[in-house]
Design a protein around this nucleic acid. Structure first.
Length: 616
DNA sequence: TTAGGGTTAG
């Protein structure tokens, strides 16, 4: 009694004590203030404890358990305090906790406000049923016109792949803002509904860079790189300047096309426009350089990074991996451990891939156990995929098979596909047959699997089996993916399809291929018939192998570039054995460096040899 | 006190 009476009401200590809370920077400080609050008998005060909870729940140096303890001690927390904990749970990915607390709030008869629903809606990410209920509450509590609530609902439905529901929310909004539009556009692009994404985009009166980016990114994510460039050109014509997000999307488009010059142009523009290169953007940039064959430039960007995130290290290690530089990849892992601390699961996917692509079997095995021993990272499907790839490529098919039999989860197509690939390399038809059928049943729409199996049968002369696989493919309406290669010349990207004659200079290109084949025969070229069956149209009277897309692209490169220039080609599928052999000989016969990126990795052909040591 | 667009693997 006297203690409370001793507080002069004209000079409320509450205000100064509570204000001090806003200047806290550590939990230790905060706890002192908290002690003060308790001493003054103000611990039931929502204003003061609200600030206290906010700091401990949300700040960098906070302490969520502490916040929860304080929260639990409050007799009647208000909406602000509930909202704070909602957000904290969301940050901690404790979605269920967030939803339980929301029901707790309702049971306590605390009315949610406009700030309550955005985090609660986001917490519904994993529970569609609850999401609909929360949507009903948004209406019931009168927030049908609140753009934050509505935009979050759109996002929620997009996350459930319920685009119609998302669209209904969107259509009913009287005042759609930039966020509504962008969420709707990017929602369609997740589902691959590019047409709808574009239609929504076109009806937007004033398009800001976020909207442009959403629609550009939509195309990039669906491998429509040329269209992404067209949109980008339009954006520039309409005087909307490229920002960091658009730059990232465009770099990814360049990566997809293997368009180095365009990528360099984007990089230059980023610099001239003073776009801040954060870790994410730097990773995208490095990835572009890695996948466009300029590992040196990627290293330059990497070395120039003041703050390197785990993703930066991972990207660079992955870059070394795809260029077959296993030693450098491992060197970088060691540097990462010394300088940056903890690698993550992706780091080891890349390290294992590096070992696999460089034939470093022992190291690969060692790192597979090391990641668990040193970092307690349990192997995921991807790691098993890499291990199977590593062993399989090296010809250790039985061991690879054993890994699959003994792994704790059931292998996905990726893992089985790695074994199938290994069977092809080592000509093990028996295992290929069994694994191939499993893979085909798991992924019946992937034409590559049928082709691989059919080609293996063909090699053994088992034509009935070839016909059977082919029929299966036809019956299921599976279309083979056409081999296509791109080459960038003077900033424009030309695409070649196997056996295609659409190019205006097709005659010259085909003549050049003829010349090439004649010339490399002097260097020992013998056409390798493996894989002949499906790669080109059957009406082709000459050997269709000679008109594989990468040969056409290389021929065009030889026609259009100067002696000494490097020829860079990007292929959508794996490079075939015949093209690989031919490319080696072309690099020797024409004294050219040829860099081919295929679906899996890079091949640097020079002086008659390939950087992959024929190991791919 | 709240929301939208961009990275890393096989």
């Amino acid at each position: 009694m006297s203690a409370i009476l001793s507080i002069p009401s004209s000079n409320p200590p509450t205000i100064s004590t509570f204000k001090n809370l806003d200047f806290c920077s550590t939990m230790a400080e905060l706890k002192q203030h908290h002690a003060q609050i308790v001493k003054l008998g103000l611990s039931s005060d929502n204003d003061g404890t609200g600030r206290l909870i906010k700091f401990s729940a949300l700040s960098q140096s906070g302490d969520l358990p502490y916040a929860l303890k304080v929260f639990a001690s409050l007799p009647q927390p208000d909406a602000f305090i509930y909202n704070t904990i909602f957000r904290a749970y969301l940050h901690a990915q404790l979605h269920t906790h967030c939803l339980s607390l929301y029901s707790h709030m309702l049971q306590n008869s605390v009315t949610p406000n406009n700030y309550s629903f955005p985090p609660v809606i986001r917490a519904c990410a994993a529970a569609a049923g609850v999401g609909k209920q929360v949507h009903a509450h948004v209406i019931k509590f009168g927030f049908s016109r609140d753009s934050y609530c509505q935009n979050n609902l759109i996002r929620m439905y997009v996350g459930f792949d319920e685009l119609e529901a998302a669209r209904r929310v969107f259509d009913r909004m009287e005042r759609k803002d930039d966020v509504s539009w962008t969420t709707m556009i990017s929602g369609y692009s997740q589902c691959g509904w590019l047409g709808e994404a574009l239609r929504v985009f076109e009806t937007m009166a004033v398009k800001n860079s976020a909207a442009w980016n959403a629609v550009i990114a939509a195309h990039v994510q669906n491998n429509r790189f040329h269209d992404a460039f067209k949109l980008f050109d339009r954006m520039m014509e309409e005087d909307v300047e490229m920002d960091g997000f658009v730059a990232a999307s465009m770099l990814a488009a360049c990566t997809g096309l293997g368009a180095l010059e365009l990528g360099e142009w984007i990089h230059e523009r980023m610099e001239s426009r003073g776009i801040r290169i954060d870790t994410k953007l730097a990773t995208t940039l490095m990835d572009m350089y890695c996948k466009c064959g300029r590992l040196d430039k990627a290293v330059e960007v990497f070395d120039g990074l003041r703050v390197k995130g785990v993703s930066s290290w991972n990207c660079m290690i992955g870059g070394f991996a795809m260029h077959g530089r296993g030693r450098d990849a491992i060197g970088l892992l060691k540097r990462m451990e010394a300088e940056a601390g903890r690698p993550d699961p992706v780091t080891f996917v890349n390290v294992l891939a590096a070992c696999a692509h460089s034939g470093m079997v022992e190291e690969g095995r060692r790192y597979f156990s090391y990641m668990t021993e040193a970092y307690d990272i349990a192997p995921r499907m991807e790691h098993y995929g890499c291990l199977v790839d590593l062993l399989g490529r090296a010809g250790l098919l039985d061991e690879a098979r054993m890994v699959i039999d003994e792994m704790p989860m059931s292998p996905d197509v990726g893992v089985l596909g790695a074994l199938l690939g290994a069977c092809r390399i080592h000509g093990n038809l028996e295992m290929a047959e069994e694994v191939g059928h499993r893979v085909i049943e798991l992924e019946p729409g992937n034409s590559g699997r049928y082709v691989l199996l059919a080609n293996l049968y063909a090699k053994e002369g088992r034509l009935e089996d070839v016909a059977r696989v082919r029929k299966l493919m036809n019956d299921r309406g599976v279309k083979k993916v056409a081999g296509s290669s791109t080459i960038e010349l003077a900033g424009s990207v030309c695409e070649f399809v196997a056996g295609g004659r659409a190019h205006p200079e097709a005659r010259e290109i085909y003549a050049k291929v003829g010349e090439i084949v004649r010339r490399i025969r002097d260097f020992g070229y013998v056409t390798d018939s493996e894989g002949v069956l499906y790669e080109a149209g059957e009406e082709e009277s000459e050997n269709p192998l000679h008109y594989h897309s990468e040969k056409l692209a290389i021929a065009y490169g030889l026609l259009k570039t100067k002696p000494g220039d490097t020829i860079r080609v990007t292929k959508n599928l794996r490079v075939c054995k015949d093209c690989h052999e031919a490319s080696k000989l072309i690099s020797e016969a024409y004294d050219r460096e040829i860099i081919v990126r295929d679906r899996n990795r890079f091949h640097h052909f020079k002086g008659g040899v390939c950087s992959c040591n024929d190991y791919w």
